[in-house]
Design a protein around this nucleic acid. Structure first.
Length: 863
RNA sequence: GCGGGCGUGGCGGAACCGGUAGACGCAACGGACUUAAAAUCCGUUGGGCGUAAGCCCGUGGGGGUUCGAGUCCCUCCGCCCGCACCA
């Protein structure tokens, strides 16, 4: 028997699908009957890749999952849109330009070509005619227009904001480029600097983005929770405090106005206007602020740093306790971006305030008494009490519950005109300006007399210049000799272009809509097309995008709706977040990382170097990454084993939402299975009745059993694909294959049942192993293409068994199993369970206390 | 630090709504075929005790709810993801 030649087969079927245009998406596709309705639409989208050069296993996993869904839905009678594009702007292209002197455009184009080829090897059911790249002017010109529309609708504005500044390279750094407070290239301690930048007003939609999460019922609960916490709605109060000897009050936002009597200090952000004012007379404060700025802009860095404060010497007057004066600090953990940039500290009921109070020896007065505590001796040690309780030490609030006290104190503050109840969101506006070259230029001209002026839409696009140099650090657009000079569109005076480009998250916030009308030239989007395909029915990507990309896209969709491009609010009706691809790590004797190709694994789990035979330490499995050298190249895998094998292994074993481990043994196992399927078909085909032979009237007992397995397999694989349990679908197919392989046909009707089984096997496996599926189908003598056939239907009569195995427990421990007719009554189950010899033995001589019967499942006898 | 998640045999995992823990795959071991090997096929495989029938233990640790817990609750431990300029 010849071996399955995947190379020949995969290329042949890919060509056949392309010739037939199988994966072209059509807005109107007849469902079948002449003059009948169109097929319903289904939009499957995987997060588009960044063209880094080669696909990695994470891509293979992502696109395999999406392709299974796309192929399955197509078989289920949907008109499917399954496009592909490139998230092509971004930092790596600039890094390549700096390190290797390759222009970003050229580097990116080459990478796209290479990765397109690799993706095509995978046999994905993609409509390649809709391919887009965000770095293409035919894409970003529309994005510039959208920017202007956001601006016209008051959803973009300009203000000062903070960036990480590398004082040696004179460059703005991304948070990822700041390593332990130092620039990654220069190693110089970074500073914070203020720049004038553009912002999307996402906070205008805070409440809507929060509320609408409820409607996203096909999103993972954890992602909705993360977004909810990110938006961070909190109810509280704004309170104005008098500062001794000063006119201007200090405004504070707090979620715990009920603990006002427990206040022992106040703190403002290092970037609070008051802090800036005080530096004039306090050189120590200036040093302190400089020290805070060295932490950079990352919230993570600020929150993990040691909490420090600088006493301003100013005193804040307590509004309710006459004569009480509290110290005012500048503290490194107070964020100017949240609330008012000023807080009051109540150490007894907030852990961070407590840590701060202990450090600076400030008072800790409890004002909330835990339900089981005694007012006389309750004290706060190292742990703040944040629970509910009854208020005490608090004047008019005494004896109230925490919620009641909040209401009472807000009423009092409002009555006295020094505060008000308010809702605060943690969500901040989205800064989109980037001081970089390889991005979408911001279509604005800065005029000395008119200020920032939008470029007229007819003059778009603002093209990126090709002739840029990366010799100098900083933004090449800024250094370009001529690019930035322009005439003011308003007054005609000599002016300068905005040399910033847009955050790449802007590119990815509307690409899914552009796929609906990728060649539209006159406008960014054609509403009829967008509303035909949108929302994306199933979006698939990594969990790392759970917040920013998805939230920004939801915001953008709301903007697009406002400008009349769509009637939808939400871009993604269904979301699936897949896990990462991991691999064991290896270290040689010197401690350096070793690539799996250099490692020989022994049967006992130890490993030696392939060439030198030296001992290798096997480390734990971690996310594949170049830095740990534990990557496996998809192209090499596909060359060696074929796309179907790679896809099959990707789907086997691990549930798709969880991290999976890539192993050499696993891919070998998948490869053996493809060979086994091929062999089984080849051996059986000559004995099978012709395709489409009529169903025999009767089947032998074993033939009937085989048919039951066949129809149960249809049922369970269907259910598993619908529920994204691909690893289970794979296991069901393995199990079914074992059944089919063990079957010994004896009669004509047995052979008919066997053909049915093999045909089903090919069809169930096809979404996961599309080439082999087609090859099996042809091997069974079918001339049509599986990709064009509907999904198999199970016969309900063959799926339900007439008898069930029921477990019998005595005192909760399994002691026997009994066979019962399906849906037997409680009495019958109880009787047969008690009659079982094993049960008899254990029950003998004891009084029956209770017998619990769960239909078709279990009988528990309690003695 | 804050927010979110995960933890089951030697390994990846299965177990529906609280109802027979370990399906399926990998690895390992034994056997068949072969001059031999590969491939393939058959069988065994959570741990302990027992000749056997069978019994006991077992889902990261500890505690709880329940006739019954991998699943629910409390608590501790370990690992992973995100934290707004990586994409």
């Amino acid at each position: 028997m010849s071996r399955y030649n995947f190379k020949e087969s995969e290329a042949r079927w890919q060509a056949a699908w392309e010739r037939a245009g199988c994966f072209r998406a059509h807005e109107s596709e007849p469902a079948g009957e002449p003059g009948g309705a169109s097929k319903p639409k289904y939009y499957v989208l995987e997060m588009f890749p960044y063209p880094s050069g080669r696909i990695h296993m994470g891509h293979v996993r992502n696109y395999t999952i999406g392709d299974v869904i796309a192929r399955y839905k197509r078989a289920r009678g949907f008109s499917v849109l399954h496009p592909m594009g490139w998230d092509a702007f971004g930092l790596p292209a600039e890094n390549a330009a700096m390190e290797r002197g390759v222009p970003p455009a050229e580097w990116t184009r080459k990478n796209i070509a290479a990765m397109r080829g690799q993706l095509k090897m995978m046999g994905l059911s993609i409509d390649w005619e809709r391919e887009i790249a965000t770095c293409d002017p035919s894409y970003y010109r529309h994005q510039q227009r959208l920017f202007l529309e956001f601006l016209e609708h008051d959803l973009v504005y300009r203000r000062e904001s903070w960036v990480n500044w590398d004082p040696v390279d004179h460059t703005v750094l991304a948070n990822e480029q700041v390593v332990e407070g130092k620039g990654w290239r220069s190693g110089a301690p970074i500073e914070r600097r203020q720049l004038s930048q553009w912002f999307f007003k996402i906070t205008e939609f805070s409440e809507d983005l929060l509320q609408a999460l409820e409607s996203l019922d096909r999103w993972p609960e954890k992602v909705r929770l993360m977004q909810k916490n990110w938006i961070g709605r909190s109810e509280g109060a704004r309170v104005s405090f008098k500062i001794a000897g000063r006119e201007a009050p200090l405004e504070v936002f707090t979620t715990r106005p009920d603990t006002l009597y427990g206040a022992s200090f106040f703190a403002i952000s290092p970037h609070h206007p008051l802090a800036a004012e005080l530096t004039a007379s306090d050189p120590g404060l200036q040093d302190f602020i400089a020290e805070c700025d060295r932490l950079g802009t990352s919230e993570e860095a600020i929150e993990t740093a040691e909490k420090k404060g600088h006493d301003t010497g100013l005193k804040v007057l307590h509004p309710f306790v006459k004569g009480q004066e509290l110290p005012l600090y500048v503290a490194n953990f107070v964020l100017m971006e949240y609330g008012t940039g000023a807080i009051f500290g109540c150490p007894a009921h907030d852990q961070r305030d407590l840590d701060f109070a202990r450090k600076y020896d400030l008072g800790v007065l409890p004002v909330v008494l835990p339900p089981d505590a005694d007012a006389q001796d309750f004290a706060v040690g190292d742990t703040a009490y944040v629970g509910d309780g009854s208020i005490y030490n608090s004047g008019f609030m005494n004896a109230m519950s925490v919620p009641d006290a909040k209401k009472a104190v807000i009423a009092r503050l409002e009555a006295e005109g020094i505060g008000a109840g308010t809702v605060q969101y943690r969500l901040r506006d989205w800064g989109l300006s980037r001081q970089r070259y390889w991005g979408c230029p911001i279509p604005i001209i800065h005029c000395p007399s008119c200020g920032p002026v939008p470029i007229p839409k007819d003059d778009l696009p603002v093209l990126l210049p090709d002739d840029v140099s990366f010799d100098k650090p900083g933004n090449p657009l800024h250094h370009h000799p001529t690019w930035k000079t322009a005439a003011c569109p308003s007054c005609g005076a000599a002016a300068e272009r905005d040399t910033d480009t847009m955050d790449t998250f802007v590119d990815s916030s509307w690409y899914f809509a552009r796929f609906c009308c990728p060649r539209e030239e006159d406008k960014p989007l054609d509403q009829a097309m967008v509303d035909h395909w949108m929302p994306v029915d199933q979006y698939i990507g990594g969990i790392e995008h759970a917040i920013l990309h998805l939230l920004y896209s939801r915001f953008f969709m709301r903007g697009l709706k406002r400008f009349g491009y769509t009637a939808n609010d939400e871009p993604f009706a269904g979301l699936f977040t897949q896990g990462m691809v991991c691999h064991e790590t290896y270290r040689g004797e010197g401690g350096g990382w070793l690539h799996p190709d250099d490692v020989d694994k022994r049967a006992d789990g130890s490993a030696v170097h392939r060439d030198s035979g030296r001992q290798i330490t096997v480390g734990r499995s971690e996310k594949m990454s170049k830095s740990k050298s534990n990557t496996v190249d998809p192209e090499q895998i596909i060359e060696t084993y074929g796309a179907d094998t790679a896809r099959w292994f990707m789907l086997s074993d691990s549930p798709p939402e969880r991290d999976m481990e890539w192993t050499a043994a696993g891919i070998e196992g998948a490869w053996r299975f493809t060979q086994r399927l091929w062999r089984l078909i080849g051996e059986a085909a000559p004995h099978l009745p012709p395709a489409r032979a009529p169903t025999p009237a009767n089947f032998s007992a074993q033939g009937g059993t085989l048919r039951r397995s066949t129809h149960k397999a249809i049922d369970s694989v269907t259910r598993d694909i619908e529920a994204f349990r691909f690893n289970r679908a794979v296991a069901q197919i393995y199990e079914f294959t074992n059944t089919v392989a063990a079957f010994q046909a004896k009669s004509g009707d047995d052979y008919w049942a066997l053909r049915e089984a093999f045909e089903t096997l090919a069809r169930l496996a096809a979404p996961m192993m599309p080439h082999l599926g087609e090859e099996m189908w042809r091997g069974l003598g079918r001339a049509d293409m599986l990709v064009e056939l509907p999904w198999p239907e199970s016969d309900p009569a063959l799926v339900i068994d007439e008898s069930v195995t029921v477990a019998v427990q005595v005192n909760g421990k399994l002691r026997a199993t009994i066979e019962l007719p399906r849906d037997s009554g409680e009495e019958a189950a109880r009787e047969q369970a008690l009659a079982d010899p094993a049960v008899q033995r254990l029950v003998e001589g004891k009084a029956l206390r209770k017998v619990i019967v769960v239909k078709n499942r279990i009988v528990n006898v309690v003695v």
